[in-house]
Amino acid sequence: MKSFTYERPGTPAEAAAAVARTPDAKFIAGGTNLLDLMKLQIETPTHLVDVNGLGLDRIEATAEGGLRIGALVRNTDLAADPRVRKDYGVLSRALLAGASGQLRNKATTAGNLLQRTRCPYFYDTAQACNKRQPGSGCAALDGVSRQLAVIGGSEACIATHPGDMAVAMRVLDATVETVDAKGTERKIAIADFHRLPGDKPEVDTTLRPGELITAVTLPKPLGGKQVYRKVRDRASYAFALVSVAAVVQPDGSGRVAFGGVAHKPWRSEEAEAALARGAKPVTDRAFSGAKPTHENAFKLKLAERTLNAALTQARA
């Protein structure tokens, strides 16, 4: 690991200012992804700004009838919160489907959104990876791509967003709240938060340099049956091949987002309008324009079947 300096600021704006004024500085919260990447020298920050003391660890009701989740609320605490369990079951389920108990105890809401891809070529510093080293190429395109994106990728990158939580937040239309070095606050719809790789795969999100996530807000509860269904290579503690977050209303309408298939949680409002007619009409439209590799084309059929299983579960 490369050496770094370290500080613990007292307020979110001070934290944002500390990162903004220091070249190659990073925020650290749970640290479960960042420290892993620092050990491998994939991330080499020269300065760490520890945000754990900023008091952003509460879940509060909003005036609109939703919830405001502090950036530092741990994944365990968010999944176990009685209001989340009762009204946002898809979010509890997505969190509990991710990582291990130890990691969920450390990992934070903001950190989960910001976790980097688990593409094997991003992790292997001997291989070309435009996300790790812009301009070096993408070894995944002709490589082992079973886990990688089937839609929304580019000639530069076919990595996926690896998380589960963000897929549920996408289906719930969450909003990410931030503050910058000047103290200016901003709200970013979750749909606009993660970006597609395009020709800048090194940029995962639309956050600006030094901008700090302070909270994620959820609109008022949607009701309906809420399901998170994750298909992976083992029963626990593995990343998704495909996952489905679904909120299904009694009349069969609803919302659906897919994980494990793209550089961001994949949701098509146009496609989900067909939800009452079953899984295939939804996935046909949501994945039109998909460009799978020869190794991961199975994900398209798997997405349809996983959605079908989720709908069956929701209607049970």
């Binding site: 490369k2 370290y6 500080e7 007292g10 004024r21 300065h47």
Partner: peptide
């Protein structure tokens, strides 16, 4: 949680530019 500014100072006496980037000098 709730670490004071004094603790922050004890950890990082000066912040920006405390050391040249990319060196392996332990802090």
């Amino acid at each position: 949680v709730g670490v004071s500014a004094a603790a922050a100072l004890a950890v990082a006496p000066s912040v920006a530019g405390a050391k040249p980037a990319g060196t392996d000098t332990p802090v």
